[in-house]
Structure formats: structure tokens, C-alpha cells
Simulated assay, not measured.
Amino acid sequence: MLNRCSSGVVAVETKASTPAGAAAELASVLPASGLAAVLVFVSPCYDPQRFAAEMTARFMGTPVFGCTTAGEIALNGRDENSVVALAFSAADFDVTAHPIPGLSDFRIEDHRTIGADIRHRFFRHGGNADGERCFGLLLIDGMCQREEVVLAAIHASLGHMPLVGGSAADGLRFERSWVYFGGRAHTDAAVLLVFKTSLPFLIFSCDTCEPSTEKMVVTEADPDRRTVSELNAEPAAAEYSRMAGIAGGVLDVTAFASHPVLVRIGDAYYARSIRRVDADGTLHFASAIDKGLVFTVATLRHPVDQTSDLFAQIQEEIGEVSLYIGFESVQRRMGVEHQCDRDMSELYRTHRVFGCNTYGELYGPMHINGTLTGVAIGAPRTK
């Protein structure tokens, strides 16, 4: 059991072997009262419902939110098979939760209903949505494939509020991910947490991709399933391997992490991560795709230097940073593992980054891949 206190937040990690043991260790270290909420990032090695029940029994006066992961970002950097918990002081934070169940039935026409409900409850709790004192944190089932429409609903109602988050994960199994709220673990669901605080904060997003000159056009796709069967009118897997220069055409999670593809939106490029390949060469993506989309093959920049520069820029803007809540793409983590995993882990440790590896990252109205996205929370400003 390890813990670290920052302004307004206590960060704790446990590697207990059972849900009961993990919850007991967290309860033994975290404050017994005076908390606005506890946020947990939970390895899929723990039974989700048992863990939720154990946490509910031990934190009866404090709401617990969170999600399952593809790895944790803990007190000593990257980790696995653990629970990372962040406890937010009620003296510095007010947290309002907005559950969004039934995502498989979520339709475009639901935007207004869901958005109006979020807006009503938010303002009822004193929110102003001006982005000066509030930020949103969205946790969503990473297997639901509904990130884009849910973000659209939230952005339509609270468009001026800074928003970050992540798609819950299931290790590298890509089978079933869970979101924690209301004393239970849920699939096919999301929860929007609105944090109101007097502390300075800044949302951020950082990738390691640089566009090359190699282009591919999606010529056959199933947007609902996020699958691509043809690129440049050729079988997708073979054409992707050829254009990305993957030796031997061996496609696995390591190859996908090392050879991302980008889409251009406005003047910026965003990664589209590939999750897996079917026997017939169909590629499964982690975020929205469509026929006619143009992919650009990416090259990877040095991630440690770039991330270190980002942290320096954030500190210049908001002053001393107490901690970062980070959502890091599992593909980014795997890509870094083959370059400089120890250095990146040390960078996270020294800058107090806590969070998890996800199946996708949420930044403003965007569902993106291949990034480190999150919120930096500053220290109290001196008067």
C-alpha cells in the first residue's frame, strides 16, 4: 500500500490480491470523512461486482466512481494488477455525477433528452459551465462504440466546459469493460462527473504521432462496427501492412501500436488505433471510421521529451501542479514499451501522474486514440 497527498487530493495504490483486501487497504489509508468523491482505476484482475460491493460497504458516506483498465498509472509510474484511487476533499471539490445507462440503445435523437437532463442537474447543483471553475470527466464502457454520440450530447449542453476522460478497458482482451457508479459496476453505460473547484486546473492532450506522406483511402467499411475491409480498393490488412512497412506483414497489438494511422480534422491530425484483425483481413478500429476517410501513415516521435515539454508548458500556465489525472491509450503504452518504458514511467512518477490505460481518450468533443489526455490540478494560489 502506497499513498501520496496533494492539494485537495489523496492518491493511493493497492496491489492486494482480492477485492475485499484491496477495498480494505484503501479504506485504511483514505480519510474517513470530508470527501467529495473517490475515483478508482481498477485492474480487470479484480471481480468488478465484488470490488464495487466491497467499496460501497467501506465508503458508505462517499460516492465511488471509476472504471476498469488496460494498466494503471500509479505512484511509481506504470503498473498492472492494482487499484489506483484518488480521494477528493470536499473542502476543495464539489462533484456531481450524471449516469448514462443503456448505451446500446443510444440514438442520435436522444441527444436533446440526455443533454437536457445533464444540464438541468448540473445547474441545479450550482454549476455555471463557464469553464472557469468546472471541468467534466467522462468514463464510458470501452466496448460500447458509443463514445462519439455521447460526447456530442454532452458538448451540445455543456460545450464551454472543459471535458476529458477515457474508455474503460479490459486489459488486452477487448471483451467486456466496466464503469463504476451507484455502488455497482456497469457495462453498456457511462458516467459524467462534473468537478467544481477553487483550485487552478488545465485539461491537456498529447500524442507522439507525426504524419508521413503515405496515404490510404477507406474504400469499404462498416461504420457501426468500426471495421474496414478495404483500403485503396485492396484487402485492408494487406494494404495497411504494405503502406506502413510492417516487416513480414505480421499484425498484432505490437505492430498496431508501432504503426498508427492518422486522420486529418481541420489543421490537426488524430490517431485512429487498430484493435485487431480478422482472418479475412478486416481491421477493427477503436474509434469512428467511415467509407471515404483518408488515413495517413504515422511516424512516432520521442514520447518522453514531448511529454516532458507538455508538463513544463502546463506548469508555466497554471503554476505548481499538485497532480495529473491521466488517461493514456493502451496503444501508446505498448508503443513506448519498445522505446523508453522505464524513462516514461519515471517521468510519470516525478510529475505525480495518476490514472489508467484506456481503449480511447476523450478530449472536449473528440474521441481520440494514441494519446495521453487528462487534467492537471494545481496547488492553491497564494493571495
Rank of each mutant, 00 (worst) to 15 (best):
G319N: 10
A237F: 05
G266A: 11
F59S: 10
T213S: 11
Y240I: 00
V304R: 14
G335C: 07
T358I: 03
V12I: 14
E317K: 15
V263Q: 07
H351I: 04
A247Y: 10
D94G: 13
V336T: 15
T307K: 01
H367D: 10
Q306N: 14
S89F: 04
I314Y: 01
H302N: 13
L347W: 01
L138Q: 10
Y363V: 07
V10P: 00
G34I: 11
L251T: 06
P48Y: 03
F327N: 05
T219P: 01
R4H: 10
G281Y: 03
A152Q: 13
V191D: 02
C206Y: 00
V191C: 11
Q145W: 07
F93C: 04
H125I: 02
R333I: 05
D188Y: 06
F88L: 09
G326E: 09
G335W: 05
F354R: 03
V95N: 05
R276W: 09
Y348I: 03
L137N: 00
A36C: 09
V217C: 08
L323K: 03
A23F: 04
R226C: 05
S6W: 03
D117E: 13
V263H: 00
F93R: 08
L39P: 01
G319F: 08
G8D: 04
V297P: 01
K15A: 13
G71V: 03
F195G: 01
R119F: 09
S28Q: 12
